[in-house]
C-alpha cells in the first residue's frame, strides 16, 4: 500500500510537471488579454525536442554532456522525496529536510557547470548569477525548513506536511504564515521566477536560468526543461500543501480516495500556477544588483517567522 502511494506520487509529479509550466503560461497569457498557448504545449515541446538533432559546441568537455543527466536526476529525486499527494509514506531518513535542500543545491551546481562549459559569455554570465543566487538563498531556505520542522516536531518534509494535514488549519497555518511567505520567496528564487529572473525573456542581458541553457539543444535541452518543470512543480505543490493541507492521502485511507486526491492535486497545481502567474503579472523584475535586498528580506522574514513559531511552540 505504502509503496503504491510512493510510486503513484512519484509518477503523478513526473507526469504532470510540464502541465504546471503550461498552466502558468496560460494564466499569464490570460492576464495579458491573450488566449495563449495550449496548456499541453510543454509536453509537445519536450517530445519534439527529444526527436531532434543535437548541436554541441566544440569548446565543451565531458562535463557539458553529464550535466543534463545529473540535473534531471536531482529533479527526479526531489519528485520522489517531496510529499505531493500523500503523507506518512516516506521514511524520515529519506525525506530529511537538509537532504532535500542539498539535492536541490546539487542540481543548481551542475546546471551552473553546464553554463560554464560553453565558453560563451552568456552562459558564464548566467552561471555567475545563478550561483550567487543559489549561495545567498541558502540561509533563508534552511531556516524556513528548520522552522517548519520545529513547528511539526519532525525533520522530514513528509512528516511536516503530515503534521499540517492532521492539525486544524487555524492552529498551524496562521502561526507559520511569515515562514510560508519566506518559503514562497525562496521558491521564486530557486525556480528563476519573478522578481529574481524573467523566464520569458529573450534578452540575454536580463537572463539567469535561460542564459545557462542557451547552448543546449535537442534531447539535452528537453531534459533540462523537464527538470526545471519538475522542480517548479515539486516546490509549488509543497507550498500549496502547506498553505492548504487538505485532500492529502494517507496509507490508512485506502485506495478508494486516490481519484479524489488526484483531483485535489491538479487543483492545487492550478492554484499554484495562478499564484505564480499573478505574481509575475503584477510586479516587476528586480535589478540583479539589488538581489541582496531580496535575499536579506527572505532571510529576515525566515527569522521573524522562526521567532513567531518559537513563541507559539513555547506557549
Amino acid at each position: 500500500m505504502m509503496y503504491v502511494l510512493i510510486f503513484l506520487q512519484w509518477i503523478c509529479v513526473l507526469a504532470l510537471a510540464p502541465l504546471t509550466v503550461g498552466i502558468v503560461r496560460k494564466m499569464k497569457a490570460h492576464y495579458q488579454n491573450r488566449e495563449g498557448a495550449s496548456i499541453l504545449l510543454p509536453y509537445w515541446t519536450i517530445l519534439s525536442l527529444m526527436r531532434k538533432e543535437m548541436t554541441i559546441t566544440r569548446h565543451s568537455s565531458w562535463v557539458f554532456r553529464v550535466v543534463p543527466f545529473v540535473v534531471l536526476a536531482t529533479a527526479v529525486c526531489l519528485a520522489l522525496l517531496v510529499p505531493s499527494i500523500a503523507y506518512g509514506i516516506l521514511p524520515h531518513a529519506a525525506s530529511n529536510i537538509f537532504l532535500i535542500g542539498a539535492i536541490a543545491a546539487l542540481g543548481s551546481v551542475f546546471l551552473v557547470l553546464g553554463g560554464m562549459d560553453t565558453s560563451s559569455t552568456f552562459g558564464h554570465m548566467g552561471s555567475s548569477r545563478e550561483m550567487t543566487l543559489a549561495a545567498l538563498v541558502e540561509p533563508a531556505f534552511y531556516l524556513v525548513l528548520s522552522t517548519l520542522g520545529l513547528l511539526a516536531g519532525v525533520w522530514s518534509l513528509d512528516g511536516i506536511v503530515g503534521y499540517f494535514a492532521m492539525s486544524p488549519w487555524s492552529a498551524v497555518v496562521p502561526v507559520a504564515s511569515i515562514t510560508l511567505l519566506a518559503l514562497l520567496a525562496v521558491i521564486l528564487a530557486e525556480n528563476a521566477r519573478y522578481p529574481v529572473d524573467n523566464p520569458a525573456t529573450h534578452l540575454e542581458l536580463t537572463m539567469v536560468h535561460e542564459a545557462m541553457i542557451l547552448e543546449y539543444s535537442g534531447p539535452y535541452l528537453a531534459m533540462l526543461e523537464y527538470a526545471a518543470a519538475i522542480k517548479l512543480t515539486v516546490m509549488l505543490v509543497l507550498f500549496m500543501n502547506l498553505v492548504l493541507p487538505f485532500g492529502l492521502l494517507h496509507p490508512a485511507f485506502g485506495l478508494a480516495l486516490i481519484p479524489v486526491a488526484l483531483m485535489v492535486f491538479v487543483a492545487k497545481l492550478t492554484l499554484g500556477g495562478l499564484l505564480v502567474a499573478t505574481i509575475e503579472s503584477t510586479i516587476v523584475k528586480m535589478r540583479f544588483y539589488r538581489m541582496q535586498e531580496y535575499m536579506s528580506v527572505a532571510a529576515i522574514g525566515a527569522l521573524i517567522g522562526f521567532i513567531l513559531v518559537l513563541i507559539g511552540h513555547t506557549l
Partner: peptide, 22 residues
C-alpha cells in the same frame, strides 16, 4: 506576439537561441 495576433495560441513561440529553434 501581442494580444491581438497572439501567435502563441497556434503553438508557435519565439526562443532566444538558434539551438532551441525549429
Amino acid at each position: 506576439g501581442n494580444a491581438y495576433y497572439d501567435v502563441e495560441r497556434f503553438g508557435l513561440s519565439f526562443v532566444a537561441s538558434p539551438r532551441h529553434a525549429d
